[in-house]
Amino acid sequence: MSRRATRHPAIFTLQRCLRTAALPALGAAVVAFTLAMWTEPMVASAAAATGARAPWLSLPIFVCAFSCVVTTVLFWPLLAARRPGSDWLRRLQRGPLHGCGAALSGALLASLLVCAPLCTVYASALGAPSIARTHTLVPAPAEPLLSAKRPHLHFALAAPLLGNELRLRPLASLPEGPLRASRVRVMADGAPLAAATAEFDQTGQIVRIPFASRTISALELVLEDGTVPLFFPTGSVELIGAGEQSGLANGLFLALLAQIPLFVALAFACLAGAVAALPTVLAVAVGVLFVMTVGGEGPLTAALQGRLQGHWLLTTSVFRQCVPSLLLGSTAMIGAMMLRRRSRR
């Protein structure tokens, strides 16, 4: 790092955030790991239920982001209105946000540095698989109801996929006659995918169909017997890719995704700080952060779960989930620029 760079507000913020966030995040990880072990659920296979440990992974990430938000807002006076010393920075810092963007970058970088080991090493300790696979949700046909009147359902994949497992989780409707579980045969490109049929009689049942790796471009579900109509909306048919991806890379990608709530929270702080004082700005930023981490809005919750379930995160669907949050944060930043320009008048 050049000597000039070490005098940059982004580096000051990075150093401050690292100092204040690293230890609390580590402490939270220790506490969360202990709680995860203490509250181990009763399941058939703990390895299969690692996704349920997502709250214990989200806790240290939230603590890290919380520390970074509070530190940054307190450190950089221009993130809130009427802070002592802000006149100094308004004269010294160039740019429409007067260094708020640099402070935000420093906080994001610090959080990324803390989150990287959390999302790789700590997630592995929580049971995240060392490999990841792509999970593709097969789009549902126009009328996704499988019943005696309509015993065939066709699913077309956007592009042929090399997979080795299919998961079905339909919604069950009221039986059309005396209750008899519906038996469904699964065909891939015209050939049966498994010798046995899948049986469903209520919502929430999940059937796994492992098969030898093959490329699939179309799926067909055939109702062979039973009186329970089954509804297969998008999300109820999931094809799992055969290719193995690095769990470490998946963790690092999760660490990147974990910065989205922090980015949005600080962007909102920047926006609110143009007119509001410190308590309001802190409340707004922490509120946004809470909603986007613990509250499950935005891509982080699904990404945490995906990491622990071994879902490969570098897919278009995950990116698509990030877009609204990124747009929201960017809009808040643009709004902050406009408000700050106006409030100077």
Binding site: P41, V43, G51, A52, T301, Q305, Q309
Partner: peptide
């Protein structure tokens, strides 16, 4: 919310754990 998410994308062990 987590329970709903698990029912949407998790397996039966995970749904039960949640």
């Amino acid at each position: 919310a987590a329970q709903r998410a698990a029912m949407h994308s998790g397996n039966s062990d995970e749904v039960f754990a949640r």
